[in-house]
């Protein structure tokens, strides 16, 4: 290339036009597109139900479901300052109460399961001996779905929360365990060598190198484990307890309250979505250092 060519003026760069008005327009459009299928389906459903194509007991119209929803979140008694405080009263609606019960079980069960799986996974990942000792047992137990433990769990723990916690913990246990093992085993040896070079002892190596390096895997395990816990809680509540969303939709079936069943199901879906969003947010924060993790 000649120096002349280098000296010529740089090509004009088009200045970007201010984006704000078209940005909101685009947002509205995106929202419209993402809701169109749902709106059309709801409309068809409402029409089918009102025009008598389906029996209301089988499939009530969405408007009825919505009314049921409002009724379910309303506190059942009038506010009485002498009996409860305002906040307690506000969340005393049946649906809210059930949701809190279910989520509480998920959290307790998950923390028991993950709390046991994490140390075992770290040990199995880090020590060949522990791995060889434990792996056969893990491989045998892992394919048994938590639901298959229901009879045993009731024999062992009776009814109420304990069998539910047991089943949920079991559901969360294996995803966390398997991913933790994989995480520790896949730590890039370059990090180990770099830390050795800085003089790291066993403890420092484990706490400050191996665990953080395995964190992407561990958090994947947490995500999957919470998902399983959420499935198991519904099943457990259908059998062992008398509140929570799983119990509520089973109860509603006995009375042919299909609107209530659907309210329960949609609530389960929404709570699952919220749980997933929270975990994703946590994930993004904890892994903000990770390659390919752009926020």
């Amino acid at each position: 290339m000649s120096t002349d060519a280098l000296a010529t003026a740089p090509p004009k760069i088009a200045t970007p036009t201010p984006a704000s008005p078209s940005r909101t327009e685009a947002n509205i459009k995106r929202f419209a597109i993402s809701t169109v299928v749902i709106v059309v389906l709801l409309g068809a459903w409402e029409a089918a139900s009102r025009l008598g194509y389906v029996k209301v007991q089988i499939l009530p119209p969405p408007s009825a479901v919505f009314l049921k929803f409002l009724e379910s979140i309303k506190p059942q008694e009038a506010y009485d300052a002498t009996k409860t405080n305002y906040l307690q009263w506000l969340v005393s609606g049946e649906l809210i109460h059930d949701s809190i019960s279910s989520m509480g079980r998920v959290l307790v069960g998950f923390f028991i399961g993950a709390g046991l799986a994490l140390p075992l996974g770290l040990a199995m990942g880090a020590s060949d001996l522990v791995f060889k000792l434990m792996n056969p047992l893990v491989q045998i137990l892992r394919p048994i779905p938590p639901i298959a433990y229901i009879p045993l769990s009731i024999l062992w723990f009776g009814l109420g929360n304990p069998p539910a916690y047991f089943l949920i913990a079991l559901g969360a246990f294996f995803p966390v365990l398997i991913n933790t093992i994989a995480g520790v085993r896949n730590v890039d040896s370059i990090y180990i060598r770099a830390a050795q070079n800085l003089g790291a002892g066993k403890m420092t190596m484990f706490l400050r190198v191996i665990i953080p390096a395995a964190m992407p895997y561990i958090l994947t395990g947490v995500k999957v484990g919470l998902g399983v816990a959420f499935i198991v809680v519904i099943v457990a509540e259908m059998i062992a307890v008398n509140n929570g969303l799983g119990y509520r939709i089973t109860e509603a079936r006995e009375f042919f309250w299909s609107d209530k069943i659907i309210v329960g199901m949609v609530t389960i879906g929404v709570l699952g979505l919220i749980l997933d969003l929270i975990v994703s947010k946590l994930n993004n924060h904890l892994l903000r250092w990770h390659r390919g993790m752009e926020h």
């Binding site: 370059i190 990090y191 060598r193 770099a194 830390a195 070079n197 003089g199 953080p212 390096a213 964190m215």
Partner: peptide
Amino acid sequence: PGPDRGMVFQEYALFPW
């Protein structure tokens, strides 16, 4: 290995976290 012989690796080997 020991800290008296500091190693700079080809693959950087910084702790990404």
